[in-house]
Design a protein around this nucleic acid. Structure first.
Lengths: 155, 155
DNA sequence: TGCGATTAGTTTGTTCGCGATCTATCTCCG
DNA sequence: CGGAGATAGATCGCGAACAAACTAATCGCA
């Protein structure tokens, strides 16, 4: 007995493997696991590491500027920064010239942790198993995708 | 005045833009925002949607099998499935043949929500702004990367 | 000058995501 | 048969991530 009438429905259904969003989502989870050992040793998390990178890169800056770079809301950053402050890795102080703003900067301990994490990333880069060409292309394509998505959802 | 002496330090420092992991991380955030409107209307979340896809694709299955497909632990899935059950989109029942296992399946309401979300994804695909070739290549590269990372962190 | 509107961050409540731990069930082997 | 070990989920605690609501400071402009 033929089942051809059911085939079109099947084609429409879609599997997880067909979703670009799921590829991004699951790869993000995989990166988290790949970095886990290193970050556990250092006592930080991935978003905290990204924050340290941004602070190391651009020096003292406001919560808002940090959020722009990290694509995070202040409601996410405030508690994260408080944890980094409690750990002694950043300082937070109100800007005297505009008391609404909070300026964040790396302490020397924060810079040290950043450098340790930065060195430790070598093993993760190796774990990607990508040849340099694919690595660079993937990064470029992802950034294009991200910026397109953000531009579209800001409308 | 030349500044060549400072360049090497700059190269070592690394900026957010140089990290593949950050490209993945921030693209995942961007997808979340691109889907947000659709999911808010339907009253579900992105991980819930992924769960519905997996259930629609493979039918009734255990929590563990679902976790393997979604790359999630049972400690993440259990509460998520309870919320889907409370919303009437899935059923959970102990397998009579092995009471340790919980078998999950879509209800007709769940199937309906999945189909609504599935149709609504068209606008998100458009928002990616990628030509078909890049879209497919990106998906393929990401899956390679994800599987490499998972294989390396399982050692 | 002064007060409404805007801006910057914080707080609160909900949902993920995970490790660690716990409970219930099943398996295996003596 | 029966108990040790393995397995499947559930629970708990913590750190993200966000929207919505809130507070405090500044701006704009009349």
């Amino acid at each position: 007995m033929k089942k051809t009438t059911k085939v079109p429905k099947q084609e429409l259904a879609g599997s997880l493997a067909d979703f670009l969003c799921f590829a991004v989502y699951s790869t993000n989870l995989a990166f988290g696991r790949a970095y886990k050992r290193l970050f556990d040793e250092l006592g930080i998390t991935y978003p905290q590491y990204a924050t340290l990178i941004a602070l190391n890169e651009a020096g003292e800056q406001t919560v808002g500027a940090l959020g722009d770079k990290l694509f995070l809301e202040s409601s996410t950053l405030t508690p994260l920064l408080k944890r980094l402050e409690a750990a002694g890795y950043v300082t937070r102080r109100r800007d005297p010239a505009d008391e609404r703003q909070v300026r964040v900067s790396l302490t020397s301990e924060g810079k040290a942790i950043f450098e340790q994490a930065f060195c430790g990333r070598e093993s993760v880069i190796e774990a990607t198993g990508l040849d340099p060409e694919t690595f660079v292309r993937l990064q470029r394509d992802l950034i294009t995708l991200r910026d397109n998505l953000l531009a579209a959802s800001d409308k």
